[in-house]
Structure formats: C-alpha cells, structure tokens
Design a protein around this nucleic acid. Structure first.
Length: 226
DNA sequence: GCATTAACCACAG
DNA sequence: CTGTGGTTAATGC
C-alpha cells in the first residue's frame, strides 16, 4: 500500500487507462490511498470537498439526509468514481459516502483532476461516459420508485444486487433491512414483511444476512409488474 | 361500503 | 436489528 503505483494498479478506471506516462507520474504524486472499514464514513454531507474519490476496492453507499429521513441514493461497487458530482457540482458535499464493507479509496486532488480533463480529451470523454451511465440509471430508478409498489422495488433491488454487485444468486446482504428501506424509499417494517413474504413463497431464502435467490423468474415478474 | 396497500406505533425477541 | 400485530389513511373497485 505504501509504494503503490497508479500505472500498474489493477483497479484503474477506464479514464485513467488513457493517461500518458507523464500524467501517471503526476497522478502518483497527488493521490492518497486510504483504507476504510465497514461502517466508516468516507466523506460527509455538508463538509468541504477538495478531492475526487475513487473506489478502488470494496462497496460503498451514497446517502443523503433528507427533510425527515436518510435516503440511500446508490450502492457503488469498485472500481468506480463516486464523488465527482459532489466535488465539481458544489464546493460543499451534497451527500455522504460510507463504506459498506472493507474498502480502499483513492483521493485525487480536484485541481489535478480538472487539469486532466482540460488536457486529455480521451480522459474527459471516459469520465463523461461514466457520469452519463450513472445519470441514466438514476432516471430509471426515479421512474420505478414512483410507480412500483414495495414488493416490486424490493424484488428489483435484490435482482440488481445479485446481478451487478455479487454476480451470484447467493450473497451476504450488505445492508440492514432499515437501510434497504432507505434505499427503496419505504419503511423498515414493509421491507421486513416483503422479505418474509418472499421467503414463505420460496422466492428467496434468508438466514441472517445470507440471501439466496430461489425463484428468479417470479422475482423478476414481481419486479416488472411493480 | 369493502378490500388493498403501506405507513406509523409499540413491544418483544 | 428484526418480526409482528394493531391502527389509520388513501385509493380503487
């Protein structure tokens, strides 16, 4: 971890892959890699933002304090940037990031990052692509969330986690039920009921945090029907 | 009216 | 942190 090298880092972003050797050298001097444990706050809503955060390994949740409750905006899996909007969109962080499991994060000075965008068009393009993909995903979630019922949204999240984060039908669920509720925008009780319901209908099985998807087809139907 | 859905509250493991 | 029951409000036949 001490003498790490960006050029040979196996967790480079697709944007970073197009940097020149000179740029890599500059990057190496202007970034800091930090390890976070499960539950650690990585950056905080309301605090000043001076670095771009890049998730090198691990999983984090992006969350925001709403008028009355906490809202989980997204779950981000490495490798991915996760603090670009909050660094360039506003001086003050508009949301917080918390590690959901052991995580390594690279902080890159935002002035340096801005320079790369100015000087290296390919780099800038890759960043735009990533931001656009995120935005599209968010739009989809807004539409779903306002029109689906609770079982539909929970089913959607389970499938999404299984497909995009764990690539398996069996995984250790990284959130509490209360957090899952904050993610899909309902109450903790509703999540609990839906989960027991799915379980008694043999769509999933869960003991503790271990979740297994037993009947993916029906779960997808529920997700689509809402 | 009656059923469904889901939030809020409360209390118990 | 989770599971459940009671209550209540909104919405849709």
């Amino acid at each position: 971890m001490t003498n790490h090298n960006c050029k040979t880092c196996p967790f480079k972003s697709s944007a970073t892959k197009v940097l020149s050797d000179d740029e890599f050298e500059i990057l190496d001097k202007n970034r800091a890699m930090v390890t976070f444990k499960k539950g650690d706050l990585i950056f905080k809503q309301g605090a000043l933002s001076t670095n771009v955060a890049y998730l090198r390994t691990g999983i984090v949740k992006i969350h925001m304090q709403g008028p009355s409750k906490e809202k989980i905006l997204r779950i981000v899996k490495a490798p991915s940037y996760f603090g670009i909007p909050t660094t360039f969109g506003n001086k003050i962080n508009k949301y917080s990031a918390t590690a959901i499991e052991e995580t390594t994060v690279c902080f890159i000075d935002s002035n340096l990052f801005r320079n790369f965008i100015f000087k290296n068009g390919k780099f800038a393009y890759e960043i735009i692509v990533e931001l656009c993909e995120n935005e599209l995903q968010d739009y989809e979630r807004y539409a779903n969330q306002s029109q689906k019922q609770v079982p539909g949204m929970v089913a959607e999240r389970l499938i999404c986690m299984s497909d995009n984060i764990f690539n398996s039908n069996h995984f250790n669920f990284p959130l509490t039920q209360s957090e899952l509720a904050d993610l899909v925008g309902t109450s903790r009780e509703s999540v609990s009921r839906v989960l027991s319901d799915f379980s008694s209908n043999k769509l999933i099985e869960f003991k503790g945090k271990e979740i297994t998807i037993l009947n993916r087809d029906v779960l997808e139907q529920i997700s689509e029907k809402g």
